[in-house]
């Protein structure tokens, strides 16, 4: 055992590695799906499937995300590939917001975490879906120009994919998955590292004293959700553990905001979008979640 390494660094490392170990299977699934999309789905398919109408495309993106059981680590490579295949950014954002939030495991774990209370799970899904639609719709209105990084530009051309044999296609899907993994891994690693720094050095305790005010408590809980960067399937129990310190609306803010966007995930988004766009989506998501929760706080 190396001597002289402070305990906090070892704690940091164990949290850092654990996030990676836990995320890697999902990232691998994500890059395989991305590789599949790259090789087998053509721009033409996308053009046929995505409605021309913006609102319809937004609703479709959110619905597909809700039906698609993804987690926030695996979803970034997928949207990156979808966008490069011509899926409009707003539909992809809708997909990204609902994918990790609405899926069977999240529903069940939320239900259990809140003492078999269907209300919290129901509100998390229902309000979450509504919020995702609002955000994706606003994205479709305010972000008109291209916000992709240069490396992810959409280039329209008629692909010659069909000419190749299936084995060649599968082979190139796999090599694409490898390239995708190397593109994504560094963002995942930076995100996981920063999130573990926060866990080891930020005293959550300091914030617990000022938890009574509905607005401040909501800000704190959403802030926690963002910086802790928990997996959406595990965060219900953490959220529930704050139950008696924080009022329910702020817990719901934690549960909805975290899966939509968090620290690790926004770093990963930098592999697809320019910084300005990532910040824009972050601020937008935070505001819409914040306002919606405050509006609905009486029924929560």
């Amino acid at each position: 055992m190396p001597i002289g390494i402070p305990a906090s660094i070892l704690n940091l490392n164990v949290i850092f590695i654990s996030i990676l170990i836990e995320a890697l299977p999902f990232v691998l699934i994500g890059v395989f799906i991305a590789g599949f999309i790259q090789i087998f789905i053509t721009e033409e398919h996308i053009r046929r499937w995505i409605p021309k109408n913006k609102a319809a495309a937004v609703v479709m993106g959110c619905t597909v995300g809700a039906l698609f059981p993804a987690c926030e680590c695996g979803i970034v490579p997928i949207i990156r590939r979808l966008i490069s295949k011509g899926v409009p950014v707003y539909a992809a954002i809708g997909f990204m917001l609902t994918g990790p939030l609405i899926n069977p495991i999240v529903i069940v774990s939320t239900y259990m975490a809140f003492g078999n209370d269907l209300k919290m799970a129901g509100l998390r899904m229902g309000l979450g879906f509504l919020i995702a639609i609002i955000i994706a719709f606003i994205v479709s209105i305010i972000f008109r120009s291209n916000h992709l990084k240069d490396s992810v530009q959409v280039i329209h051309h008629h692909s010659y994919v069909k000419k190749r044999s299936l084995i060649e296609q599968i082979w190139s899907m796999l090599t694409h998955s490898i390239d995708e993994f190397f593109d994504m891994a560094k963002y995942l690693i930076i995100g996981a590292f920063l999130a573990s720094i926060v866990q080891v050095f930020m005293p959550a305790k300091a914030f617990l004293q000022i938890a009574d005010d509905p607005v401040i408590s909501l800000v704190i809980m959403m802030g926690f959700a963002y910086i802790l960067s928990l997996c959406s399937e595990a965060d219900a129990f953490i959220g529930a553990s704050f139950s008696s310190i924080f009022p329910r609306p702020s817990i719901l803010g934690f549960l909805i905001f975290g899966p939509m966007i968090d620290f690790k995930n926004s770093i990963m988004m930098l592999s697809v979008f320019r910084l300005k766009f990532v910040l824009g989506v972050l601020v937008l998501t935070a505001s819409v979640v914040f306002i919606t929760i405050l509006l609905f706080q009486n029924i929560i």
Partner: peptide
């Protein structure tokens, strides 16, 4: 502070 409030918490995860 986070120990006092486990009353509503059911940490049995169903999969």
């Amino acid at each position: 502070a986070v120990l006092g409030n486990k009353n509503n918490v059911n940490s049995n995860q169903a999969d």
